[in-house]
Amino acid sequence: MQVAIRGIGALGEGFSDWDGLRRVLAGGESDAEQVAPRPQLIPANERRRAPLAVRLAVEACSQAVAASGLDAADLACVFTSGLGDTDLTDYMCRELAGERKQLSPTKFHNSVHNAAAGYWTIATDCRQPANSVAGLEQSVPVALLEGVTQCLVENRPVIIAFYDIPTRSALAELFANREAFAAALVITPEDDPAALARLACEVEADPAPQWPQPDLPPALSHSYQYNPAARVLPLLVASTGSLNAEFSLPLSGGTRLQCRVSPTGATPNNPAQEVNP
């Protein structure tokens, strides 16, 4: 299965967009210390109520669509978060364990797993299919497989968003993620002349699939280890290079998603470099 990557968006600790992430990956200085996205796509009143997870996803998608030059209303969507909105999960558990047992309707509304997809499609007037998937650590390959399949079967552009926020309180004991991370890809059918890179994916059997270990700066290394959405970093690292790159992402206990990224201008049949150092 082969598609074109037409636009990329990204934000996290130390970078506020795709250019910033590329600079950090190349060993440059960080351009932001704290992730506080304020996506202009969401009206001000709604933006004030939108939780961090939603704002991360919408901002990353906005960047990717702007880079693609396409209309957001025409894009099918796949949103994925491995942990969901951990702030709201913590809030609801504490409220329900207490004496009041009264949940804020707004917070409950924002706690559902497809909240980000809802904000995005309403803000962009998008009536195309919108899916929200999750697979904990395997959320990235699950979302990639879903998005690439839709793109090819339906012959349509698709945006795939990956996002997770830090865990706090009791949840931090289970998931030690300290940093926010979000990225988004706009993919199109393979023959797109405006492609930034091309992505080939295949599901393969593997009795013990292993995650690649790309050479990352310390802050990104922590995100890659503990933030499920940051498991897309091998693909983003490959997208910054000038050579074909191959890597595999564990899809389940017995399968992997084998990926190959060919930057624009690279010959698809050229030998590929491994993302692993």
Rank of each mutant, 00 (worst) to 15 (best):
M1G: 13
V3M: 13
A4W: 09
I5F: 08
I5R: 13
G7V: 06
G9I: 00
L11I: 04
F15L: 11
D17C: 11
G20R: 06
L21M: 06
L25I: 05
A26P: 04
G27R: 09
E33F: 12
E33I: 10
V35T: 14
P39R: 07
Q40W: 00
Q40L: 07
A44S: 15
A44P: 12
N45A: 09
N45E: 05
L52M: 14
A53D: 07
V58H: 09
C61S: 13
Q63S: 07
V65F: 08
A66E: 14
A67R: 14
S68P: 13
S68W: 04
G69N: 11
L70A: 14
A72P: 05
A76E: 10
V78S: 07
F79M: 11
T80G: 15
T80F: 05
G84Q: 08
D87V: 04
T89V: 02
T89E: 07
Y91T: 03
Y91E: 10
M92S: 12
M92N: 07
E95I: 08
A97W: 01
G98Y: 05
S104L: 05
T106L: 04
N110W: 06
A117N: 14
I122L: 09
I122F: 05
D125R: 15
C126M: 01
N131R: 02
N131K: 01
S132H: 08
A134N: 14
L136G: 07
E137H: 15
E137D: 14
Q138Y: 04
P141N: 11
V142N: 15
L145W: 11
E146W: 13
V148S: 05
V148A: 06
C151P: 09
V153N: 06
N155T: 02
P157Q: 09
I160W: 10
I160N: 09
I160M: 15
F162C: 12
Y163G: 13
Y163P: 11
I165A: 11
T167K: 03
T167F: 03
A170N: 03
A172M: 02
L174C: 01
F175I: 12
E179L: 14
A180P: 06
A180D: 07
A180H: 09
A183S: 15
A184S: 13
L185V: 02
L185N: 03
I187E: 06
T188H: 00
A194T: 10
A194V: 02
A195V: 00
L196D: 04
A197L: 00
L199K: 11
L199H: 09
A200C: 13
V203F: 02
A208E: 12
P209K: 14
W211C: 09
Q213V: 13
A219G: 10
L220K: 08
H222V: 10
S223D: 05
Y226I: 01
Y226E: 13
A230D: 04
L233N: 07
L235G: 06
A238C: 12
N244A: 13
N244Y: 03
A245S: 15
S248D: 12
L249E: 00
P250F: 04
S252E: 07
S252I: 03
G254L: 01
T255L: 14
R256K: 15
L257Y: 12
C259K: 10
P263F: 00
P263K: 00
G265K: 08
T267V: 12
P271M: 11
